[in-house]
Simulated scan of single mutants.
Amino acid sequence: MNVIVIGGGVAGAASAIALRRLGVEVTVYEAYAEPAGQVGSFLSLASNGLRVLRSLGVLEQVQRAGIDVPGQRMWSSSAKLLGDVPRGRLSGDELHSVTLMRGALVEALRAEALVAGAAIVTGERLVDAVTTEGGVRAVFASGRTAEASLLIGADGIRSATRSLLDPHAPTPEYAGLYSISGIADGIETEPGIFNLTFARNGAFIHLAAPGGKVWWSAQVSSPAQPELSRTDEEWLRHLAGLYRHEQVPSAILDATVELHRPTLMHRLDAIPVCQNDRIALLGDAGHPVGAGQGASMALEDALVLAQSLAAEPSIKAALSAYAAVRSDRVAKMVKAASDNRDAKTAGPLARWMRDLVMPVGVRLCYERATAWLYTHDCGELPTSRTPADSQARGARL
């Protein structure tokens, strides 16, 4: 059995690791020359995603690349503490959330995929995927073609694989939020705490980083899609005006020494076709979620798909089993992400109600409400197969 993975980000690299652990031949095709570059801001991995990394044998590498963040505090615009909870876990879980730059996570996963024996080809953009009698043929913009038993589309929210699988698939729409992040210096911030301020114009996140730095991200509520061509100085002036009512975010913006370019946040309607007999979507290509769970959900997908391929007698049966295992959990996560997004775009009355009710709700209900998410364990990969086992299984698939 051999597999083509489209996309060398978190979902694609994790899938390559999982499949190589089973002895499957894997080639990852990535459109960008350097997908592990410092593109975008930081992200967080919750306990459910970290369990997957442990199953794949890369937990320690990722922990070393990031920041241990055991706690989370939520603040109102007026700096009232709304909640103080474990970050991305329940209170009894010793597996602390990890926050790291997206590029660092991709780099760690890609390195492990290469060590595991996956091939990674960069600068190749998928333009067609044709199901054949014995598998699937991928066609790239360069004219290169490749054939495999299975093609996995792990190419993100603007997935080319999704459009090829279903020409009528929904397309991403601006969600009324955009994110812009940066690094500040000289601001005293308690280590190990992920701070989330529900500001008047959108959420503001910050945490202590190595070297006395502060990583921050502003998730700005804006019904109209913003003009992205501003200079860094213009963006900082703009943000300073938006967050002038919030003392800590204002101070962090004033102390900013590095700015990352803004990213539009998108929503995507439910995708009716996520697979056929030889092609499957993974991660954001099949179900963008956000809410701090995009990477963790992609990791879960990668492990469950590998487990299904190991357990089922055919690729068709494996893809059906994968969809059955993931569908309810993903649907619940998509709903939670939508609620999370709405909280960041709340109007004055909704903000007043939230500030009034949230301290009580967090204290009484937080762990019970999030247990389904953070305690989830996808399990382990099957024991590594011998070459003979892998060849025999490949013939059956």
Rank of each mutant, 00 (worst) to 15 (best):
W372F: 12
G117P: 08
P348S: 12
P86R: 01
L150A: 06
A270L: 11
E94W: 12
V304F: 04
E107P: 00
L207W: 00
G92Y: 14
V325D: 08
A203P: 00
V10M: 03
S149A: 15
A295L: 03
R261G: 10
A104S: 11
G153K: 00
E188C: 04
L59A: 09
V248R: 15
D128L: 00
S76P: 06
P359Q: 11
S217H: 02
V85I: 14
D166K: 00
G49R: 02
E173A: 14
N201F: 04
V136F: 09
A65F: 02
V52N: 00
A79K: 13
L259N: 01
A209F: 02
D355N: 15
T122E: 15
G143S: 11
L56D: 01
A224M: 10
S149C: 12
R51C: 11
S390Y: 02
S390G: 10
S314A: 12
D328H: 13
A321D: 14
G290F: 03
W215Q: 00
L268D: 01
L236C: 07
F140G: 04
G117H: 09
K80S: 14
S308K: 02
V3R: 10
A129N: 05
E30P: 07
A160C: 08
I152H: 05
S390T: 15
L53F: 09
P172F: 04
W352N: 13
T263K: 05
T263C: 06
P288I: 13
I183D: 01
R237F: 11
A337N: 04
A336Q: 05
A291S: 13
V24N: 01
